[in-house]
Design a protein around this nucleic acid. Structure first.
Lengths: 233, 233, 233, 233
DNA sequence: GATGAATGAGGCTTCATTCAT
DNA sequence: CATGAATGAAGCCTCATTCAT
């Protein structure tokens, strides 16, 4: 009986791992398809083809199209945001945390074009209700205002300016219409908008930036790999 | 024979007028439906219901969903932009032309909620290739930089900042999440971003603003009226 | 009053002529379209385009699709058959009348490819109820049997053999798969089937054949001309 | 694991069988509908009604009207032709193979009126590119010429005469306008056309003919049964 | 859990026909 | 009579979702 219990346990664990793997596989494929065809397109056919899985299996994981999109937005968006936040957490200056975070975000959009296109396709909802962006950025803004780095302003105003401009830049990057100079100039304009000291902003933006290491197992990285591989076929 | 020629002429003219009226009616209905259901939705069913027109008639005017959307974007967007441009044309200061134009645009979004929701739904494409926005705003930016009202910066950078922030504000207005103070604060941030003098910006934004008169026959106004009427039914 | 009566008369006559011209124009266009797209295709759109006439006008002449097809079959088929019959009427030998008639028919199919394709498209119905073929050929068969030129056989059997083979040959000609030798060999086989003397058949088929002169105003000729002209555009 | 492999296998086999059954069911229904409404008619609605199957299922098997027709022509035509060929294969005389084959074909058209009507509706295309007719009959013709049973003649000429007359006869049978004597007389005329000895032809055509046994599972038989059953409802 | 055939609602599109001008 | 915009029935096709195996 003890043996059986252990076996049971082992089986349960293995099953849970398999579920998790399949879940990730589907989300990866979804990113690919959403980025290509848009959010409102008919998607399931392509997703199961990309994931090489049967229709029935798909419905064991997501009951509707919308659930899949929600999962993709949530898991993808947060994966990147969490990595960025972890990276800048130790930085003492709130303004620096914010601008370095933006630089890392734009850099990710460039390195993972699929992700950039996904964000462009999803639009503002990509930074929707559940997004950690809405937790972290306001905190940085408030802290920067508090610290006198930014001019006094309502947090939501600053947030909207940052997000609005940020999404535009990602769209430009996804469309391959943004070079380094463009991104730097936009960030400088953003610094002005927030009332951040010009010299410090320029120094910050000129500093070298080590790219984010998401790890080979990240959804974004795996999805990009899947995309490249599909293109070759 | 003369009589017949005149008759011919008269008929032709009457027919052309009828076509134009039907075209407008469909675009008005389209605005309504796109605003409600989004750009990628199945729209034809609802449009013909809103316009109270047969399925076949629709296809006499637009062959696809996309054609309709393109017409809506083009005609609606340009209608408003042209009115705004005409209003500010005489203003000597380029910066004033730009900021007054933005205020008028936001004001229109508030007065015609349908239009606001439409822009939110369409997203950046609402200011797409054919839009006069891309003709007028860059000209104002360049002139303002030239006149020393704005700090030197690439026109496209300034344009993207303005459009990115502008669309975000319209989305807020459409979601009824924007009061006067919010809009003013955003415009002030925008003034900072562009390097516009703070005192002048504040004076400009504090000036009273007569609402734009689009005329009762404007697409935007008629569409809004159609919407209100439908709601009552 | 007399004057008015004459005027009335004149008007009536002119109107009748106009009606007849329009009727012919539509039938000509119909041949073209039926030959190209088949009998069951949607045809009216193309017919009015080919005839450069409005929808409404079409319905002033034919109430349905089927009426148009019936008119085309009747008028086209009989035009050719009557010309052939007139040409061979004076020939004393019934067998010669029959075989010369067939040669002229096949020759017409070659010279007016549109007509050939029309017959192929319409199939057996091209020689339907109202066709004069069903009046003339049986008479020739019966006379030939009577005269001992053909072996004794039921008229309908001979008719079906002739028509069945004849339509096949027209289809081949229309598909550009039939040269002179092929046609001659088929006619020889037909002669054998009917029990016609071999030597006489060979002499008959070897005789030179002046092509039928349908006149420039014939439906077949005008339709062919219309087709060639359209192709050039 | 072994168990799972077996299960897999079993499932695959069962699924393939189901697919095949559905395919046959659709083709059977198609025969019925094509025979009734013709080849160019809108057919899908009726086919799915006759097969008692959903719209979507149809599209899982055939993407267009034309694909369905092609399948029907191919599978139906070849089923019958193969049965006939098998039956006459052992007959030493090529002419006898040919004429017995024709008698069997006409007999099938009489016993399965649906098939006859189908052939009439489809016309020459019923013996189209992929048809085995085009493999077998020319071989018999060539062999008969070689053996001196037929007069020397191009194979295609003989083939066209046979097919042209044959389709006409099937059309007559389908229209219930052909009795035994008519069919016999046409076959005799065909024998003359091909130069086959009259005495031998008459003996051949007078010989008793056991009807073809297609088996209860044949498409033709099942389709006919389906038709009769529908008529009763 | 995995599979993929079956479903059918939902939306798209054409085109014969009508009718006001 | 000629015109051509409007109609709407009739088909077409897709695709999210279910379900038996």
């Amino acid at each position: 009986m003890l043996d059986s219990a252990l076996t049971q346990d082992h089986r349960t664990r293995v099953a849970a791992e398999r579920r998790a793997r399949m879940h990730r596989k589907l989300v990866e494929s979804a990113l690919l398809v959403f980025a290509e065809k848009g959010v409102d397109a008919s998607v399931i056919e392509d997703v199961i083809a990309a994931a090489d899985v049967s229709r029935g299996t798909f419905y064991n994981y997501f009951r509707t199209n919308g659930e899949l999109l929600a999962a993709a937005i949530e898991e993808l968006g947060n994966e990147l945001v969490e990595h960025i936040e972890e990276r800048v957490r130790a930085t003492p200056s709130p303004a620096a945390r914010l601008f370095t975070g933006l630089r890392l975000y734009f850099d990710a959009a460039r390195r993972f074009p699929l992700f950039g296109r996904f964000v462009r396709r999803v639009g503002p909802d990509a930074i929707g209700a559940g997004s950690r962006v809405n937790a972290y950025i306001p905190a940085h803004i408030a802290a920067a205002v508090e610290a006198g780095e930014f001019v006094a302003q309502p947090v939501r105003v600053a947030l909207d300016v940052i997000v609005g401009v940020g999404l535009t830049v990602v769209a430009r990057i996804a469309g391959d219409e943004a070079d380094e100079a463009y991104v730097a100039a936009v960030l400088l304009a953003l610094a002005r908008a927030l009332g951040f000291d010009r010299a410090r902003a320029e120094a910050l933006l000129a500093a070298p930036l080590a790219p984010l290491d998401l790890g080979a197992d990240s959804l974004v990285a795996r999805s990009q790999a899947l995309f490249v591989q599909q293109d070759r076929e």
